[in-house]
Simulated scan of single mutants.
Amino acid sequence: MVQQLSSETSPEIIYPDSDGQPMADNTEQFKWIVVIKENLEILFADVADVFVAGDLLWYPVRGNNKIRQAPDAMVAFGRPKGRRGSYKQWEEDNIPPQVVFEVLSPGNRAGKMADKLLFYQRYGVEEYYIYDPDGIEIAGLIRSGDWLERIENMNGWVSPRLGIRFELTENTLEIYHPDGQRFLTFVELDRLREQERIAKEIALAEAEEERQRAEEERQRAEEAIAQLEQEQQRYQALLEQLRQRGINPEQL
């Protein structure tokens, strides 16, 4: 009689790195996702334990690959920077992203957005921001106990976690770094760097001109001092000649 051994090992659960959905539905949505994510990267570039990602699948529950979301941008404080195929929370000291952003497109349905809100509320998000670039409207929610409560006035709101400020104009949303620098696109950043490069070159050229002027002034001053010394030497020589002839210069 042959005894069969039963295996207690369960099949390995795969957590896909992609949900098969596009990152954005149009150019405006894509632009804002990139602007927010990259400026957050810049903001925390020198902070080792702040992880920023865009369109990265977040799995909060080990053993269930159906529970997941891919925020347009997210920030996890207390987690190191580095490459990830997805954000598996149990591998991240069970730290959820504290701040998430969603940029709306015409394809965002009310039911889908409600599901996202419930997900972020249930799994520990502290700040949730939703921007509609078509309607130029931004909504924010902040955690109060077990709930995410709506922020009454987002115009001028400063994120407690990020320190960034939101300003709505007639034409667009403007987001500002804690130092007052506006969130910029790559094109604007490139132009700003070019302007800074040109300004630096002008400043260096002006400094060089000033140095040359100072050097010329120094040389003129040295020449004047040398001429004065020569005149003094000639004057002393003349006095000595008069004394040698028996003439007292002081009596002249």
Rank of each mutant, 00 (worst) to 15 (best):
W157T: 06
P160V: 05
L162T: 10
I175L: 06
R182N: 02
E206Q: 14
R182C: 07
N171M: 08
E174W: 05
D179Q: 15
G156Y: 13
I151F: 07
Q212E: 11
H177L: 13
R182A: 11
E208K: 10
L162F: 06
G140K: 05
R211K: 05
H177K: 09
Y176R: 03
I151Q: 01
L192S: 05
G163M: 07
I175N: 00
L148G: 01
A214D: 01
V158W: 04
L204T: 08
F183M: 05
E194Q: 10
G145W: 11
R211H: 07
A199N: 07
L192E: 08
E216G: 01
G140H: 09
L141V: 02
E196A: 12
R143V: 11
E217N: 08
R182Q: 09
A203T: 13
N153T: 14
R191C: 06
R165P: 06
R161A: 10
Q195L: 10
K200M: 00
Q195S: 04
A203L: 15
R211Q: 07
G180P: 10
A139N: 06
L168H: 02
E152C: 03
F166N: 04
E215Y: 08
G140L: 07
E210G: 07
P178R: 10
L162A: 06
A199P: 04
A205V: 08
E194K: 14
T185E: 08
G163Q: 09
V187W: 00
N171I: 12
S159Y: 04
A214T: 07
E174L: 13
R150A: 11
E215G: 02
Q195P: 04
R150M: 09
Q181M: 09
F183N: 03
A207L: 14
V187C: 00
L162N: 05
G156H: 14
Y176A: 02
R191S: 06
E152M: 03
L141M: 06
E170A: 12
A203N: 13
R211F: 12
E216W: 06
R165A: 11
N153I: 15
G156N: 12
A205H: 11
G145M: 09
V158M: 02
D179Y: 14
E208S: 07
L168N: 01
Q195R: 13
E188Q: 14
R150T: 14
F166K: 05
A199Y: 04
L141I: 02
S159Q: 07
R191F: 12
E188F: 05
R211T: 06
E194Y: 15
T172M: 00
W157K: 00
E215R: 12
L184N: 03
Q212W: 04
G140V: 08
E194A: 12
N153D: 15
F183Q: 01
D146W: 10
A207T: 13
G163I: 11
V158H: 04
I202K: 10
I142R: 01
R165H: 11
I164W: 07
R213E: 11
E174Q: 11
R165N: 12
I202G: 00
R191W: 14
D146R: 14
E167I: 12
R143L: 08
W147D: 08
I142S: 01
A199C: 04
E194C: 03
E170R: 13
L173E: 02
F183P: 01
D190L: 11
R193P: 00
Q212S: 02
N153E: 14
D190G: 04
L189W: 10
V158Q: 03
L141W: 13
M154D: 02
E196Y: 00
F166H: 08
N155D: 15
Q195Y: 10
E174A: 01
E194M: 13
N171Q: 12
L192N: 04
T185S: 15
